[in-house]
């Protein structure tokens, strides 16, 4: 009992210390370095504007952009909410449509053969090419925007979930067969959990794409009014050469994208951390 004790209590050796240092570097660096880069760029931007006396209608300083964000908040907030609403609704529709179609395709070969090519065609056709037609034929502007964003966002969910539903271990599939599992049991207890990591990967892509879809669709729609989003505000500000507001709106869109990505990443981590290789923390 006394013999191994010194070994256990011995101070961490050089190797161990080096690894801890590397771990700390990794943890802090992940935040510190991007932050440092941003601050540096902002400072450079600010100095360039000030030293060269660049007028704000050519390039506003970062301080002015933040200021505009504050003063124009009454205009920008409703626009942000509109864009956010369309983005989230489109993402929801993409999840429902993508997962629904994936389940249908894996359950019925006939459905897959009939409809999969159209899903691909929708995916490969650029949105800006279809959007004008959609705005002509779909009466409600909200519905048209949603449809546009959905077209861009649903495919990653569909293709990833389809792949996931098919990727369940073959021996487990055989086991389900030996125990006489029904189709529904197989889907629920085997294919769905096996597809979850794939689905979440698709969801992360779809989150970004639904924002892009919403913004692009709004550009194409190009109409103002009370229910207009950030993209329209940018368009409007550009007609008026209100460059600071353009930057402020752009900043909001970028932050929205980052927030969506972060939220979906967190969701993915929460759902997978117990068992999936991508999320479990390995004991070292």
């Amino acid at each position: 009992m006394t013999d191994p004790a010194p070994l256990v209590l011995a101070p961490p050796d050089a190797e161990e210390r080096r690894r801890r240092r590397a771990g700390r570097f990794e943890r802090i660096g992940r935040w510190a370095f991007p932050l440092a880069v941003v601050l540096l760029l902002l400072a450079a931007w600010d100095r360039i504007v000030v030293w060269n006396d660049i007028p704000p209608y050519v390039l506003p300083s970062p301080r002015l952009v933040i200021g505009t964000l504050a003063t124009d908040w009454p205009v920008l907030l409703p626009a942000l909410l509109v864009t956010l609403q369309i983005t989230l609704l489109a993402l929801l529709a993409a999840v429902l449509g993508g997962v629904g179609l994936a389940v249908l395709f894996t359950q019925s070969r006939l459905a897959e053969m009939s409809f999969y090519p159209y899903a691909v065609i929708l995916q490969v056709t650029p949105l800006v090419a279809i959007a004008p037609l959609i705005f002509i034929y779909v009466g409600s502007k909200l519905a048209a925007l949603l449809l546009c964003a959905w077209i861009v966002a649903f495919f990653p969910v569909l293709s990833n979930t389809t792949l996931g539903l098919r990727s369940a271990d073959h021996n487990l599939q055989d086991l389900f067969r030996i125990y006489g599992a029904t189709r529904w049991q197989r889907l629920r207890y085997l294919q769905a959990p096996a597809a979850l990591p794939y689905f979440l990967g698709g969801l992360r892509i779809a989150g970004g794409l639904s924002l892009i879809g919403a913004v692009v669709a709004e550009y194409v729609a190009g109409t103002g009014g009370t229910g207009s989003g950030l993209a329209f505000r940018i368009l409007e500000a550009s007609y008026r050469l209100n460059i600071p507001r353009m930057f402020a709106a752009l900043l909001l869109i970028a932050l929205t994208g980052v927030a969506i990505y972060g939220a979906l990443n967190l969701l993915s981590y929460m759902l997978l951390r117990k068992w999936h290789e991508s999320a479990v923390r390995r004991e070292r």
């Binding site: 271990d169 086991l175 599992a181 207890y189």
Partner: peptide, 28 residues
């Protein structure tokens, strides 16, 4: 009534040991 043990453990990684063992009865 049959059961099968494969060359690899063939467990469901998302389920605890208990829930893995439960499978045949769950399907019943």
């Amino acid at each position: 009534r049959l059961s099968f043990v494969f060359q690899s453990p063939t467990l469901m990684p998302w389920a605890t040991v208990e829930r893995n063992v439960w499978l045949p009865l769950r399907l019943a």
